[in-house]
């Protein structure tokens, strides 16, 4: 389903931005209030709840033992999945994942995977036979804009929170967590900038997302390098706008990382 937004609201948001203001009083480079809670589930091996403003995303990490990919016999496996459940918004529908859900999961996955933040080789149990499989499941609870940043922040928080369960005689004892953490060696974060008219703003709220022309998500590492990007929306960006967003993302990433 599609959310409908009135022309009046569209004009209002755009003209406010032209005066350098936002609907909720934020500056162009401000996040809404961010709250990160770790360890909110005792069944998951790691978990986190992230709020950015009224957006709420819960992320759970489950671990299983399985076979590695044939071309990487000594590496653990990472899979990221997202669910936009109908509980979270009147526009979300039940059923198989739609393209927005798939895009969200894949962009978050790329940020984690390409940063190399999980040292997958340390997750090998027996080469070519047994490795840890890390399932990152993103559960959106309340959708009020900017799911990319909330989901990726939640995923890293949940990975940092993860403790390996005990293995006895090749069986996983899920009830008995060890104190061993996942080998998380970097903290990549994603920052999303929306373009409305000629203005570029961080962390679009739902209203801003509904009227935006385009968005650009940039994942950055602790070193200040770029590890993933995704443009969204049917609008366009100029070369200069992209380079500007990349610089702003590297700066903002540092701030976002403090919540982990």
């Amino acid at each position: 389903m599609e959310e409908i937004v009135s022309e009046i609201k569209k004009d209002y948001i755009a003209s406010l931005l032209d005066q350098g203001k936002r609907q909720d009083g934020r500056g162009f480079d401000d996040y809404r209030e961010i709250i990160v809670e770790k360890g909110i589930s005792n069944k998951a091996e790691g978990s986190a709840l992230v709020r950015i403003g009224d957006t709420q995303v819960m992320v759970g990490v489950k671990l299983a033992v399985g076979e590695p990919f044939p071309d990487m016999p000594d590496s653990g496996v990472l899979t990221t999945n997202a669910e936009l459940i109908p509980l979270a918004s009147p526009t979300f529908e039940k059923g198989p994942p739609d393209e927005n859900t798939i895009e969200l999961a894949r962009v978050v996955d790329r940020g984690i995977r390409e940063s190399g933040c999980i040292d997958l080789e340390k997750l090998c149990i027996a080469e070519g036979e047994k490795v840890w499989i890390v399932f990152v499941d993103i559960h959106v609870l309340d959708y009020d804009g900017n799911l990319f940043d909330a989901s990726s922040l939640g995923s890293i928080a949940a990975l940092l929170d993860t403790r390996l369960p005990k293995i006895e005689d090749g069986r996983i004892l899920y009830g008995e967590k060890t104190r061993k953490k996942l080998p998380v060696v970097d903290k990549p974060v994603e920052t999303t900038y929306a373009k409305i008219g000629n203005n570029i703003i961080l962390d679009p709220s739902l209203d801003e997302e509904l009227v935006m022309d385009a968005r650009l998500t940039v994942a950055t590492t602790e070193k200040g390098e770029i590890c993933a990007m995704q443009k969204g929306g049917a609008g366009t960006y100029t070369r200069e706008e992209i380079l500007d967003i990349v610089s702003r993302s590297i700066d903002k990433g540092k701030e976002l990382r403090k919540y982990l």
């Binding site: 770029i226 590890c227 990007m229």
Partner: peptide, 13 residues
């Protein structure tokens, strides 16, 4: 104007 931009891997600015 750029209409598609995706990236994965590792780049400095």
């Amino acid at each position: 104007e750029i209409t598609l931009l995706q990236m994965d891997g590792n780049f400095t600015k």
